[in-house]
Amino acid sequence: MRVYESPVARIGLTVFALAVAGFFALPLLWLITAPFNPRTTLAVELPSEPSLSNFETVFGNSFAVRALFVNNLIIAGGTMVLVAVIATLTSYGLSRTRIPGRDLLIYVLILFSSVVSGTAAMVPIFLLAYNLGLVDTLTGVILVMTGGYLPSAIFIMRDFVDSIPRSYEEAALVCGASPLRIFMDIAVPLVRPGVMVVAVWTFVNAWGAFLIPVVLLRSPENMPASVAFYSFYTEAGTPLLTLVSAYAFLYTIPVLLLYLLVNWKFGFRFFGGIKR
Protein backbone atom coordinates (compact mmCIF):
# COMPACT_ATOMS: atom_id res chain seq x y z
CA MET A 1 0.00 0.00 0.00
CA ARG A 2 2.91 2.35 0.31
CA VAL A 3 4.91 0.99 -2.56
CA TYR A 4 3.40 3.12 -5.26
CA GLU A 5 2.85 6.45 -3.59
CA SER A 6 1.62 8.82 -6.24
CA PRO A 7 1.32 12.55 -5.48
CA VAL A 8 -2.43 12.16 -5.92
CA ALA A 9 -2.53 9.58 -3.14
CA ARG A 10 -0.42 11.82 -0.95
CA ILE A 11 -2.75 14.79 -1.43
CA GLY A 12 -5.73 12.53 -0.92
CA LEU A 13 -4.33 11.32 2.36
CA THR A 14 -3.61 14.85 3.55
CA VAL A 15 -7.12 16.00 2.71
CA PHE A 16 -8.60 12.98 4.46
CA ALA A 17 -6.39 13.53 7.53
CA LEU A 18 -7.33 17.20 7.74
CA ALA A 19 -11.02 16.40 7.40
CA VAL A 20 -10.86 13.81 10.17
CA ALA A 21 -8.79 16.10 12.38
CA GLY A 22 -11.31 18.88 11.80
CA PHE A 23 -14.17 16.58 12.72
CA PHE A 24 -12.52 15.77 16.03
CA ALA A 25 -11.23 19.27 16.77
CA LEU A 26 -14.14 21.56 15.91
CA PRO A 27 -16.49 20.59 18.74
CA LEU A 28 -13.69 21.27 21.20
CA LEU A 29 -13.06 24.87 20.15
CA TRP A 30 -15.59 26.20 22.63
CA LEU A 31 -13.63 24.66 25.49
CA ILE A 32 -10.62 26.73 24.52
CA THR A 33 -12.29 30.11 23.98
CA ALA A 34 -15.20 30.19 26.43
CA PRO A 35 -13.31 29.96 29.74
CA PHE A 36 -11.39 33.13 28.98
CA ASN A 37 -14.42 35.18 28.07
CA PRO A 38 -16.02 37.03 30.99
CA ARG A 39 -19.35 37.18 29.08
CA THR A 40 -19.34 33.83 27.43
CA THR A 41 -22.21 32.27 25.48
CA LEU A 42 -22.46 29.06 23.50
CA ALA A 43 -20.81 30.84 20.57
CA VAL A 44 -17.18 30.19 19.81
CA GLU A 45 -15.67 33.64 19.74
CA LEU A 46 -12.34 35.07 20.69
CA PRO A 47 -13.01 37.14 23.79
CA SER A 48 -12.64 40.85 23.09
CA GLU A 49 -11.07 41.23 26.50
CA PRO A 50 -9.60 37.88 27.49
CA SER A 51 -9.52 37.49 31.21
CA LEU A 52 -8.98 34.96 33.94
CA SER A 53 -11.89 36.27 35.99
CA ASN A 54 -13.93 33.10 35.43
CA PHE A 55 -11.13 31.05 36.89
CA GLU A 56 -10.83 33.39 39.84
CA THR A 57 -14.48 32.82 40.70
CA VAL A 58 -14.11 29.07 40.24
CA PHE A 59 -11.16 28.98 42.60
CA GLY A 60 -13.33 30.82 45.15
CA ASN A 61 -15.52 27.70 45.30
CA SER A 62 -13.30 25.60 47.54
CA PHE A 63 -15.75 22.69 47.39
CA ALA A 64 -15.33 22.38 43.63
CA VAL A 65 -11.58 22.90 43.77
CA ARG A 66 -11.14 20.18 46.35
CA ALA A 67 -13.43 17.88 44.37
CA LEU A 68 -11.29 18.24 41.30
CA PHE A 69 -7.77 18.33 42.63
CA VAL A 70 -8.08 15.99 45.59
CA ASN A 71 -11.07 13.67 45.43
CA ASN A 72 -11.03 13.06 41.71
CA LEU A 73 -7.35 12.24 41.80
CA ILE A 74 -7.83 9.80 44.67
CA ILE A 75 -10.85 8.12 43.10
CA ALA A 76 -9.52 7.90 39.55
CA GLY A 77 -5.97 7.14 40.65
CA GLY A 78 -7.02 4.46 43.14
CA THR A 79 -9.38 2.77 40.71
CA MET A 80 -6.75 2.93 37.99
CA VAL A 81 -4.10 1.20 40.11
CA LEU A 82 -6.44 -1.50 41.36
CA VAL A 83 -7.92 -2.25 37.95
CA ALA A 84 -4.58 -2.21 36.16
CA VAL A 85 -2.92 -4.55 38.67
CA ILE A 86 -5.79 -6.98 39.00
CA ALA A 87 -6.60 -7.02 35.28
CA THR A 88 -2.97 -7.80 34.47
CA LEU A 89 -2.81 -10.63 36.98
CA THR A 90 -6.11 -12.05 35.87
CA SER A 91 -5.62 -11.86 32.15
CA TYR A 92 -2.20 -13.40 32.56
CA GLY A 93 -3.57 -16.20 34.72
CA LEU A 94 -6.40 -16.80 32.25
CA SER A 95 -4.07 -16.76 29.29
CA ARG A 96 -1.64 -19.26 30.73
CA THR A 97 -4.00 -21.87 32.06
CA ARG A 98 -6.52 -24.03 30.35
CA ILE A 99 -10.01 -22.70 31.03
CA PRO A 100 -12.78 -23.82 28.72
CA GLY A 101 -15.18 -21.14 27.57
CA ARG A 102 -12.89 -18.40 28.77
CA ASP A 103 -14.03 -15.74 26.29
CA LEU A 104 -17.68 -16.37 26.94
CA LEU A 105 -17.08 -16.25 30.67
CA ILE A 106 -15.39 -12.86 30.46
CA TYR A 107 -18.10 -11.61 28.18
CA VAL A 108 -20.87 -12.66 30.54
CA LEU A 109 -19.05 -10.75 33.27
CA ILE A 110 -18.93 -7.68 31.03
CA LEU A 111 -22.68 -8.03 30.59
CA PHE A 112 -23.13 -8.19 34.34
CA SER A 113 -21.03 -5.09 34.74
CA SER A 114 -23.20 -3.24 32.23
CA VAL A 115 -26.23 -4.03 34.37
CA VAL A 116 -24.57 -3.34 37.69
CA SER A 117 -23.20 0.04 36.65
CA GLY A 118 -26.54 1.23 35.27
CA THR A 119 -29.15 3.41 36.99
CA ALA A 120 -31.29 0.41 37.89
CA ALA A 121 -28.56 -0.98 40.14
CA MET A 122 -28.25 1.95 42.45
CA VAL A 123 -30.38 0.63 45.29
CA PRO A 124 -28.54 -2.71 45.59
CA ILE A 125 -25.19 -0.96 45.25
CA PHE A 126 -26.06 1.49 48.00
CA LEU A 127 -27.35 -1.18 50.38
CA LEU A 128 -24.32 -3.34 49.70
CA ALA A 129 -21.95 -0.48 50.43
CA TYR A 130 -23.98 0.44 53.49
CA ASN A 131 -23.70 -3.03 54.96
CA LEU A 132 -19.98 -3.07 54.30
CA GLY A 133 -19.64 0.31 56.03
CA LEU A 134 -18.45 1.91 52.80
CA VAL A 135 -20.97 4.73 52.42
CA ASP A 136 -19.39 8.18 52.26
CA THR A 137 -15.91 6.77 51.83
CA LEU A 138 -13.68 7.16 48.81
CA THR A 139 -12.62 3.54 49.36
CA GLY A 140 -16.19 2.44 48.75
CA VAL A 141 -16.36 4.32 45.46
CA ILE A 142 -13.02 2.89 44.37
CA LEU A 143 -13.99 -0.69 45.24
CA VAL A 144 -17.38 -0.54 43.56
CA MET A 145 -15.97 1.06 40.42
CA THR A 146 -13.14 -1.47 40.31
CA GLY A 147 -15.68 -4.27 40.30
CA GLY A 148 -17.50 -2.54 37.45
CA TYR A 149 -14.49 -1.86 35.22
CA LEU A 150 -12.61 -5.13 35.75
CA PRO A 151 -14.35 -7.34 33.18
CA SER A 152 -13.88 -4.89 30.30
CA ALA A 153 -10.30 -4.24 31.41
CA ILE A 154 -9.56 -7.98 31.43
CA PHE A 155 -11.17 -8.30 28.02
CA ILE A 156 -8.97 -5.55 26.56
CA MET A 157 -5.89 -6.87 28.33
CA ARG A 158 -6.44 -10.41 27.11
CA ASP A 159 -5.37 -9.48 23.57
CA PHE A 160 -2.09 -8.05 24.82
CA VAL A 161 -1.26 -11.05 26.96
CA ASP A 162 -2.23 -13.52 24.27
CA SER A 163 0.10 -11.81 21.85
CA ILE A 164 3.21 -12.44 23.99
CA PRO A 165 5.04 -15.51 22.81
CA ARG A 166 5.27 -17.98 25.65
CA SER A 167 8.68 -19.35 24.71
CA TYR A 168 10.44 -17.01 27.17
CA GLU A 169 8.27 -18.17 30.02
CA GLU A 170 8.70 -21.81 29.14
CA ALA A 171 12.44 -21.33 29.09
CA ALA A 172 12.30 -19.60 32.48
CA LEU A 173 10.11 -22.35 33.85
CA VAL A 174 12.66 -24.94 32.76
CA CYS A 175 15.32 -22.95 34.60
CA GLY A 176 13.19 -23.22 37.74
CA ALA A 177 11.86 -19.68 38.07
CA SER A 178 8.71 -19.31 40.20
CA PRO A 179 5.44 -18.33 38.48
CA LEU A 180 5.40 -15.01 40.30
CA ARG A 181 8.93 -14.26 39.19
CA ILE A 182 8.08 -15.13 35.63
CA PHE A 183 5.10 -12.83 35.82
CA MET A 184 7.03 -9.91 37.27
CA ASP A 185 10.23 -10.22 35.24
CA ILE A 186 9.01 -11.50 31.91
CA ALA A 187 5.30 -10.92 31.44
CA VAL A 188 4.85 -7.49 32.98
CA PRO A 189 7.55 -5.74 30.94
CA LEU A 190 6.16 -7.29 27.77
CA VAL A 191 2.55 -6.29 28.40
CA ARG A 192 3.39 -2.83 29.71
CA PRO A 193 1.72 -1.05 26.75
CA GLY A 194 -1.40 -3.03 27.56
CA VAL A 195 -1.24 -2.07 31.21
CA MET A 196 -0.97 1.55 30.13
CA VAL A 197 -3.99 1.34 27.84
CA VAL A 198 -6.08 -0.25 30.57
CA ALA A 199 -4.80 2.27 33.11
CA VAL A 200 -5.68 5.26 30.95
CA TRP A 201 -9.03 3.74 30.01
CA THR A 202 -9.88 3.16 33.67
CA PHE A 203 -8.63 6.54 34.77
CA VAL A 204 -10.69 8.49 32.25
CA ASN A 205 -13.81 6.47 33.04
CA ALA A 206 -13.40 6.93 36.77
CA TRP A 207 -12.49 10.59 36.26
CA GLY A 208 -15.82 11.34 34.63
CA ALA A 209 -17.88 8.91 36.72
CA PHE A 210 -20.98 10.37 38.19
CA LEU A 211 -23.63 7.88 39.19
CA ILE A 212 -21.76 5.81 41.76
CA PRO A 213 -20.23 8.79 43.59
CA VAL A 214 -23.65 10.45 43.83
CA VAL A 215 -25.15 7.35 45.32
CA LEU A 216 -22.33 6.51 47.72
CA LEU A 217 -20.83 9.82 48.84
CA ARG A 218 -22.28 12.40 51.21
CA SER A 219 -19.73 14.81 52.66
CA PRO A 220 -18.63 17.73 50.52
CA GLU A 221 -15.04 16.83 51.40
CA ASN A 222 -15.51 13.59 49.43
CA MET A 223 -17.44 14.69 46.34
CA PRO A 224 -15.82 14.37 42.92
CA ALA A 225 -15.80 16.99 40.18
CA SER A 226 -18.69 15.50 38.19
CA VAL A 227 -20.97 16.31 41.13
CA ALA A 228 -19.30 19.63 41.95
CA PHE A 229 -20.06 20.69 38.39
CA TYR A 230 -23.63 21.35 39.48
CA SER A 231 -22.51 23.91 42.01
CA PHE A 232 -22.02 26.21 39.01
CA TYR A 233 -25.70 26.07 38.17
CA THR A 234 -28.34 28.59 39.24
CA GLU A 235 -31.13 27.90 41.66
CA ALA A 236 -33.34 27.53 38.58
CA GLY A 237 -31.15 24.65 37.42
CA THR A 238 -29.50 26.38 34.49
CA PRO A 239 -25.72 26.50 34.00
CA LEU A 240 -23.65 29.64 34.51
CA LEU A 241 -21.66 29.27 31.30
CA THR A 242 -18.79 31.46 32.44
CA LEU A 243 -18.02 29.31 35.44
CA VAL A 244 -19.04 26.02 33.86
CA SER A 245 -16.64 26.55 30.97
CA ALA A 246 -13.75 27.47 33.25
CA TYR A 247 -14.37 24.46 35.47
CA ALA A 248 -14.74 22.21 32.42
CA PHE A 249 -11.39 23.44 31.20
CA LEU A 250 -9.69 22.61 34.49
CA TYR A 251 -11.53 19.29 34.64
CA THR A 252 -10.13 18.28 31.24
CA ILE A 253 -6.48 19.18 31.78
CA PRO A 254 -5.50 16.18 33.98
CA VAL A 255 -6.82 13.50 31.61
CA LEU A 256 -5.14 15.24 28.72
CA LEU A 257 -1.84 15.38 30.59
CA LEU A 258 -2.09 11.74 31.59
CA TYR A 259 -2.65 10.70 28.00
CA LEU A 260 0.19 12.83 26.66
CA LEU A 261 2.53 11.52 29.36
CA VAL A 262 1.69 7.88 28.73
CA ASN A 263 1.82 8.32 24.98
CA TRP A 264 5.21 9.99 25.22
CA LYS A 265 6.71 7.52 27.70
CA PHE A 266 5.24 4.21 26.57
CA GLY A 267 3.30 4.84 23.38
CA PHE A 268 -0.46 4.55 23.57
CA ARG A 269 -1.35 1.62 21.37
CA PHE A 270 -3.18 -1.65 21.65
CA PHE A 271 -1.36 -4.95 22.14
CA GLY A 272 2.24 -3.90 22.02
CA GLY A 273 4.81 -3.82 19.33
CA ILE A 274 5.75 -7.47 19.35
CA LYS A 275 6.15 -8.73 15.84
CA ARG A 276 5.48 -12.36 15.36
Binding site: A17, V20, A21, F24, A25, L26, P27, L28, L29, W30, L31, A34, L42, A43, V44, V200, V204, W207, G208, F210, A225, S226, F229, P239, L241, V244, S245, A248, Y251, T252, V255, L256, Y259, L260, N263, F268
Partner: peptide, 23 residues
Protein backbone atom coordinates in the same frame (compact mmCIF):
# COMPACT_ATOMS: atom_id res chain seq x y z
CA UNK B 1 -5.42 12.85 14.05
CA UNK B 2 -4.78 10.24 16.72
CA UNK B 3 -4.32 12.76 19.52
CA UNK B 4 -7.50 14.63 18.63
CA UNK B 5 -9.49 11.40 18.38
CA UNK B 6 -8.21 10.24 21.77
CA UNK B 7 -8.97 13.64 23.26
CA UNK B 8 -12.61 13.29 22.18
CA UNK B 9 -12.62 9.89 23.85
CA UNK B 10 -11.14 10.84 27.21
CA UNK B 11 -12.81 14.16 28.06
CA UNK B 12 -15.35 13.86 30.89
CA UNK B 13 -18.87 13.51 29.62
CA UNK B 14 -20.34 16.65 31.20
CA UNK B 15 -17.65 18.68 29.48
CA UNK B 16 -18.36 16.97 26.19
CA UNK B 17 -22.04 17.81 26.49
CA UNK B 18 -21.31 21.53 26.73
CA UNK B 19 -18.86 21.38 23.84
CA UNK B 20 -21.49 19.76 21.65
CA UNK B 21 -24.20 22.20 22.61
CA UNK B 22 -21.84 24.93 21.55
CA UNK B 23 -20.97 23.03 18.38
Amino acid sequence: VYTLAVLAWIIPEVVVAFCWWAF
